[in-house]
């Protein structure tokens, strides 16, 4: 009997010892970047032995968990304002870029044939433009045979960073939208149907002639959906593709955005896709365990160096090199109990 206890105790000690040598970083939050974090984690563990345990519980959950310090980092699609970061004692930085793409189901209309402006999109989602052959849509689509179909608006029913980015864009481009609806991860939609997740929106769009919806870029691309060209700040109608998301990120003024609070909406540049957004990581500015803080930042440092190909293969857009330099510089703000930066 005694022998068995000794064996069990020895086993437990061995387990604790091995846990200490192979550390685990825990994170929780946004579902949108979860596939790329998982892919990075796999490669990182193979190289360094440090495991990442990421729970895709949604941005809201991610913010709550990092505020309560139950995880080492939180992840959110909806950036926190600099004031909120300061109050919560958090540091925020972006990891990858994605975009939101309007998709449609119009008989006889191919991907990229329809051109829309932000104001038109807002009027469609407000229920003001009700038919596809409305003169307001025809204005930017000379030469396209617009069908006489009622427009069915499809939006996300679940609270989502995608909706946040989309409604932020509409708020930016249309004063009516900003005052009547506003921007959030779930809003009071003036009209239309709600689909659960990207696939719910896509299914409803595919099943309804005359429907318009919005999905994440990766989803639109992988499912070859009929997308619209959007007018950007330079007045050009651009295609939703990786290079154009990168253009939006490259032209953005990151250096003048405190806490990287930046929505990459309607950025300057001839190629910039107007509905682009980054997804973010949150860590505590004051780390109780300096070694742990260093491990978290080392993981993202490694991801910035080695993770671009993996991100691109999953149709995320990696950050421009100069933004990565800015982010590394911002990590000086993450300090240990002794007040010294944990990462150098």
């Amino acid at each position: 009997m005694f022998k068995r206890y000794v064996a069990a105790a020895a086993g437990a000690i061995a387990m604790i010892a091995s846990a200490a040598s192979a550390a685990t970083i825990t994170g929780a939050g946004a579902t949108f970047p979860a596939p790329v974090y998982a892919k990075w984690a796999e490669a990182y563990k193979a190289q360094t032995g440090t495991a990442l345990n990421y729970q895709a519980i949604g941005s809201g959950g991610g913010i709550k968990q990092i505020t309560a310090s139950t995880v080492d980092f939180g992840a959110t699609d909806k950036p926190l304002k600099p004031d909120d970061l300061a109050t919560a004692g958090l540091v925020m930085f972006p990891t990858v870029i994605g975009g939101v793409v309007p998709v449609m189901n119009l008989p006889g209309v191919r991907a990229g044939q329809i051109k829309l402006t932000g104001a038109q999109l807002a009027d469609i989602y407000r229920g003001v433009i009700k038919r596809w052959n409305d003169p307001l849509i025809a204005k930017t689509n000379a030469g396209v045979a617009l069908p006489n179909l009622p427009i069915t608006v499809v939006h996300r029913s679940d609270g989502s960073g995608t909706s946040f980015v989309f409604t932020s864009y509409l708020s930016m481009k249309a004063a009516h939208w900003a005052s009547e609806v506003g921007a959030n991860d779930s809003v009071k939609w003036p009209t239309g149907l709600g689909g659960k997740g990207n696939d719910g929106v896509a299914a409803m769009v595919k099943q309804t002639e005359g429907a318009i919806g919005y999905v994440e870029y990766a989803y639109a691309k992988q499912n070859s959906m009929t997308y619209a060209l959007m007018q950007n700040k330079a007045g050009k109608f651009v295609t939703p593709q990786a290079a154009n998301f990168r253009a939006a990120a490259a032209n953005a003024k990151w250096s003048s955005a405190p806490g990287f609070y930046l929505l990459l909406l309607d950025q300057p540049g001839a190629d910039a896709w107007p509905i682009t957004a980054a997804t973010f990581i949150l860590v505590h500015a004051k780390q109780e365990d300096a070694a742990k803080g260093r491990e978290v930042l080392s993981f993202f440092d490694w991801a910035y160096k080695n993770g671009d190909a993996a991100a691109a293969s999953l149709d995320y857009v990696p950050l421009p090199a100069d933004v990565k330099i800015l982010i590394r510089a911002s990590w000086k703000k993450v300090v240990g109990p002794d007040g010294k930066p944990v990462y150098h």
Partner: peptide
């Protein structure tokens, strides 16, 4: 018409509800 039920509203919005009042 499309509608919502109590359960569907909670399932849709709980994960991303950030404001105290929303939760």
């Amino acid at each position: 018409a499309s509608g919502a039920t109590i359960a569907s509203t909670i399932a849709n919005e709980f994960a991303e509800a950030t404001g105290e009042l929303h939760t």
